[in-house]
Lab assay of single mutants.
Amino acid sequence: HNLTITQGKLFFHYNPKLCLSEIHKMEEVSGTKGRQERNDIALKTNGDQASCENELLKFSYIRTSFDKILLRWEPYWPPDFRDLLGFMLFYKEAPYQNVTEFDGQDACGSNSWTVVDIDPPLRSNDPKSQNHPGWLMRGLKPWTQYAIFVKTLVTFSDERRTYGAKSDIIYVQTDATNPSVPLDPISVSNSSSQIILKWKPPSDPNGNITHYLVFWERQAEDSELFELDYCLKGLKLPSRTWSPPFESEDSQKHNQSEYEDSAGECCSCPKTDSQILKELEESSFRKTFEDYLHNVVFVPRKTSSGTGAEDPRPSRKRRSLGDVGNVTVAVPTVAAFPNTSSTSVPTSPEEHRPFEKVVNKESLVISGLRHFTGYRIELQACNQDTPEERCSVAAYVSARTMPEAKADDIVGPVTHEIFENNVVHLMWQEPKEPNGLIVLYEVSYRRYGDEELHLCVSRKHFALERGCRLRGLSPGNYSVRIRATSLAGNGSWTEPTYFYVTDYLDVPSNIA
């Protein structure tokens, strides 16, 4: 807008934040220059609390790290170098490059900038070799853009010569660093050979998330399962459950009422301010606690030095998902009996873990797994792929695949051998790939016309006998059925096997 004052003059007093240069501009645009008398524009009460600059400061050096910015700028000295009290560095987070010096300023003089007072450097006698002032900004957020400017702080001049310097606002972004852990990993099994893994992005990506790394490792069953005799009275049979499938998407929606109208769909109840505040506090606490764990609990591995020492970490090797089922080394339970199943799973520490690289999504279907087997899954978020990966501390989750139908069934015939004193040795093959492992066998036998009897055969007993022995049988026709019990439950009964026990007292003698 054009402003013209045809008559009258300007009068400025007691404006401590208004620089004289701005008042002189007002004289020019209003056409009143030359009308004012000496005392109409006070030299001592206008701009006496402001830094009124008329020179431009330029930054000469900028260096960044993930949490620091090192700045240096060209030296500046007023005509009387004693008038320079120091520099004021202003900075704040700036997602967009549209910041002005006066953003967030209120009537009390406060604003949204963080201000650092910096002492002037030592003055050199040689004007050509003056030290460049600077400042190291610490405690910054990774991968965050900051708006920065600097200006001088000078003393009051009796001659009211307006001098000083100020830089333009520059924008500097800190470097990326390792992201925080992925949030809320959930693993479920939808079949006997697959596990579905879902997660949420890290709360602090500290860069642009480029991919996720998912490692999985087959877990050995508890050692007590191999040692305890679950045929003993009072000892509860062990059981394991597989990871249940995901709930429906509708039930997972946030901010939804727990109660549904019987007449149909209901609208979600909005969260109160107290609920939102509580969630923010919980989120802040979780982030602080995660940072504490990362800094205190997890110790970084030592990389190899120039002395030739090897990095103890196993090298990563990509495998196809079809090879995942046989990740671990199978060892027989008892070496003397080769027909026992290889369900003991000690994992070799030198073995390469299978892994998958996930790009542009937060889910993965891990296939080719062994049925009813526990897996430990390790999830890392990465925001750099080359020249070397920059990934987060791992988040861990466990899951067990679903049982395989008929995996616990005894394959092959049940054979028998009759000894003296009416002892019958029953023999059968253990299931080759049971659900988890076989903890015991149930032997059901009966003599024709009598009630059915049951015998429990422990895992250890089966390994020693290759089956079991029935003792003290009365003469007669017998039928026997056997079924295995694994961590997933009972298998199917075998087809009945028949044998006849004679009275050993009636056996004919070869003595003449």
Score class of each variant (00 low, 15 high):
502 T>H: 13
221 E>N: 06
353 R>V: 15
382 C>Q: 01
380 Q>N: 11
296 V>N: 12
261 D>V: 15
381 A>D: 00
337 F>M: 12
502 T>E: 13
348 S>P: 13
240 R>M: 06
421 N>A: 10
371 H>R: 13
436 G>S: 14
380 Q>T: 14
291 D>K: 01
300 P>W: 05
210 T>S: 02
395 A>C: 04
295 N>M: 13
296 V>Q: 12
275 Q>R: 03
411 V>L: 03
246 F>V: 13
471 R>C: 11
435 N>W: 02
302 K>H: 11
275 Q>F: 03
434 P>V: 12
355 F>H: 08
291 D>C: 02
393 V>H: 14
406 K>F: 13
267 C>L: 02
274 S>T: 10
215 F>Y: 04
286 R>M: 10
210 T>P: 06
356 E>Q: 10
318 R>Q: 13
389 E>N: 11
448 Y>C: 14
367 S>E: 12
227 E>D: 08
486 S>W: 01
292 Y>V: 02
451 E>S: 15
451 E>Q: 14
456 C>K: 01
447 R>C: 13
317 K>M: 10
345 V>R: 08
362 E>G: 03
264 G>L: 14
270 P>E: 01
464 L>H: 11
323 D>P: 08
361 K>M: 10
475 P>V: 09
458 S>R: 09
443 V>C: 04
467 G>S: 13
326 N>S: 11
508 P>L: 03
461 H>D: 04
286 R>N: 02
407 A>W: 06
284 S>R: 14
307 T>A: 08
269 C>K: 01
381 A>S: 13
260 E>W: 03
469 R>Y: 07
387 P>D: 04
245 P>D: 06
437 L>C: 13
380 Q>L: 11
505 L>I: 05
339 N>P: 10
406 K>S: 07
353 R>L: 09
257 S>N: 10
395 A>H: 12
390 R>P: 11
235 L>M: 11
355 F>Q: 09
415 T>S: 11
322 G>D: 08
312 P>V: 07
385 D>A: 09
457 V>I: 10
240 R>S: 08
470 L>D: 01
327 V>N: 07
503 D>K: 04
358 V>G: 07
241 T>P: 15
412 G>P: 14
392 S>Q: 00
368 G>W: 12
363 S>I: 12
262 S>L: 08
472 G>A: 13
302 K>D: 11
438 I>D: 02
403 P>F: 03
226 F>Q: 08
322 G>N: 09
458 S>H: 04
458 S>G: 15
399 A>D: 01
437 L>E: 09
486 S>G: 04
489 G>Y: 10
242 W>Y: 05
